[in-house]
Design a protein around this nucleic acid. Sequence first.
DNA 1: CAGCTTATCTGGTCTCCGTCCCGAAAGTCG
DNA 2: CGACTTTCGGGACGGAGACCAGATAAGCTG
Lengths: 199, 199
Amino acid sequence: MTRAGRPRLSSRPMLEDAAHELFLEQGYAATTVDQIAQRAGVGRNTFFNYFGAKSDVLWADVDDALAALPPSAELRGDDDPIDAVRTALLEAADTMPAHRVPWAVSQSELLGLGAELASSGVHRLARLTEWLGSVLSSRPERPSVTERAAAHALAGAALAGAIDWVRAGRGRSALRDHLAPALEPVCTGFSAGSGCRTA
Amino acid sequence: MTRAGRPRLSSRPMLEDAAHELFLEQGYAATTVDQIAQRAGVGRNTFFNYFGAKSDVLWADVDDALAALPPSAELRGDDDPIDAVRTALLEAADTMPAHRVPWAVSQSELLGLGAELASSGVHRLARLTEWLGSVLSSRPERPSVTERAAAHALAGAALAGAIDWVRAGRGRSALRDHLAPALEPVCTGFSAGSGCRTA
DNA sequence: CAGCTTATCTGGTCTCCGTCCCGAAAGTCG
DNA sequence: CGACTTTCGGGACGGAGACCAGATAAGCTG
């Protein structure tokens, strides 16, 4: 089935490839959106039809993984929501194979990224936190401090695990293996059934 | 004692006041750096002598608090580093009185902030995480996954507590009271002496 | 006082991101 | 064939932030 309208003559992967080439050749900051579009053989505006910002190219893989997270409604009402999100996170991690490391992060030193990487990456952290909060909060309109703290802390721990995964180098194992130990202490701290806290 | 060189004829507070006025009048995005400088009676470049970016005005208070955190060397080698950072964080929180809510966050709806607020605010979260990591890691050059995870999770929990504090409205109590419950589960999860985990 | 050093202020220029508008191209559908 | 729909692309604009060269105003030194 083909939708109406002019068919696209470019695609996200095409633009990604062009951008990655240029980033490797000249570095991220020195590469302009014009150059990316030119190498891909399209106009500059077409780039912004596919990516909202230049830095979005760096995070295409992560954005896909985040978009693939199950809707919060599916996990709400679970017995132990902490355990539910942990399982969902680990399953989402399994969809990202070890050879497909987020391109940007693995090349960060080489590309001279730094502040740039951090500032664009936190958007993804914020989205993860939002998703976690929507699952963990019994009343999403007014979540408790603890629920918010759990969402932020879990997101932070997941980030730490992901960073560790990336830094593990080529021989790294699955993302799940790095994520699980990072999440575990936070889960025990916040899990209602941990039994080691009276409150 | 007066240092050599031309004396400053403006100051950070002057620029902050000018910026805050304009932000309230027209919103953050609609206010240009030119306008801020003009209202403060200085040149545009002078603004950038005091602030590295336009968004830095929003976070002046937070930046001061972060800069006042004790150097990591003071806290390293403590018996329980988790407890040490918690204490340090709560003490830093006490230096921020309840009436001096970070200006930007409290006015975020009114100013039409949103993505802007988040993207500039996470720089501060990253700095807090970095500080936490430098304290928590026994070997800062190669911290373990758990140490990284603890730093990120604690930073996230602190953020959640701070957000809750801001949202508590005018009758809010001290920041410490909102921070402590947010940090507590993470601390118990990561504290070596929690005794509820065999690993 | 004259001259040197130091630090701030100012104006101008530059690149480039991100946004907007509008018209052209290229398909599908009735 | 004509209407509709979607993508493509050119042009223009505003604004952030970097950079530089020069002016200004203090303290220090001889």
